[in-house]
Computed example of a mutant assay.
Amino acid sequence: MARKQAFLRHVAPILAAPVARRDVDRRWQEVLTAAKDFGVEQASLVVLAVLSTIVNPARCAAKSLLKFHVTYSDADAYNALSDLQALDLLLYCLACFPEMHTQLCTADRNLALFWVGANASDIARQGDGIRFTMTPHDAVLPEPYAKRWAAEVKAAG
């Protein structure tokens, strides 16, 4: 959680304003480099959410979850991560108890939209952890970016 919090604090100032089309590739790379530097997996929900804010110039669920602004604080990052951690816990419950009908009840529309848009599937236990596949909907990552992200996640192994 601390690594993800530091990661969000690092990228927030550069993503507080919408990213111009000409800067998308540079910001994308900066985010992936920061994730690596802070020890945050590229395949994580938090990285997916941050990348979504880059490629979606209009309002999107990820922007509303992360609420980036220039003076982003530890408390802001903690609040955003608390929402995303609920989704991480949901993934673990789905993987560890596949026979159970598991759901997350929330009044947070943006959290629900992001969860549906992340399109997690093939959720299962793997060793001491879990594995899952995310195939983001166009509303989270438009197709060319979704393919790019999937290739980079695969390359990061």
Rank of each mutant, 00 (worst) to 15 (best):
K36P: 03
I123V: 05
L45N: 14
V70C: 05
I54F: 01
V46C: 06
T53F: 00
D88T: 12
A43N: 12
N79Y: 07
A112I: 00
L90P: 09
A86P: 01
F114A: 08
D108T: 05
T106D: 12
L84S: 06
N110H: 15
C105F: 10
K63A: 08
S64Q: 15
T71D: 12
C60M: 04
K63H: 14
A34V: 07
L65W: 07
K67T: 10
V46A: 06
R109A: 05
A77C: 10
Y78K: 15
V116K: 11
L87T: 07
A120P: 09
L84E: 00
L113W: 10
N79T: 05
E30C: 02
A75F: 05
F97N: 13
V31N: 09
V116C: 08
T33D: 13
A62I: 00
W115L: 07
T106Y: 08
D122P: 04
F68C: 09
G39S: 15
C96M: 15
A61P: 00
A95I: 06
V70A: 15
K63S: 15
Q42D: 07
D83M: 13
V46L: 06
H69D: 13
P57G: 01
A120Q: 14
S64L: 12
T102Y: 01
H101F: 05
A58R: 15
T106H: 06
S73Y: 00
V47K: 01
A43T: 10
L91F: 04
V47L: 00
S64R: 08
H101W: 03
S73C: 01
Q103G: 15
A80M: 03
L81R: 04
A80I: 00
S121M: 13
A112S: 15
A35L: 08
F68E: 11
D122C: 09
L87P: 14
A95N: 06
V50R: 02
L51N: 09
Y72H: 03
